[in-house]
Amino acid sequence: MEKSIEKIWNESFINEQSLVAPKINDLYNQKSKSIISRIKRTYEIDNKGLIPIAVLVLITSIIFSQYIIGVYGASLIIGLYFFNRNLLNRFNTIDIKSDNLTYLKNYRKIIDYVSKATKNLFMYIIPLVVLSIFILGYFIKDTSFLARFISKDTTLIEILGIGVTVVFIIFAIAMTVFKISTKILYGTLISKLDDIIKEIEELKQ
């Protein structure tokens, strides 16, 4: 190759205005294809799905005369909706016009934050919610769903024992689902991002 790369480049693009842009249809209504926007959209759809679930829980509890547990369950689901909504706001903080290193680092931080928040939700919040339903059920055991499964003289410790067992099963399933979904959703992206960030940081030194 005799010509310098600069010469090849300049000769090929003598008239840059002649480059023809790909046809784009209805760009203004197009949805973003970036992974962050896709994750955000999926979260938004999933999150909105919690509202009908909360309504369904409430209606079912009314049908089965489990008013207190119904209201409690529906409130928890609505709480989860607001938790997720708050989480989604993080996506809006990424500034795409910042320099590459800052942008990639912010991008990485958001992924970490979402991942950590989801993990905490699976690890602590969901088990606690399930356990709290058992405790609530114990205190209103005459009228709650637990009346069908336990005798009147069952102690709180015994109920807690059952609750903890259920929580452990839910925890094991939830963590497995979390790990698999994280790997599928973020695995390749995270390693690619880390490589690029590492390279720019090395360049910076």
Binding site: I35, R38, I96, K97, S98, N100, L104, L189
Partner: peptide, 15 residues
Amino acid sequence: TWLYRVTLNVCLTLA
């Protein structure tokens, strides 16, 4: 310059 930044950020992160 601004176009470069945005386009590069898109290319570096697009799945």
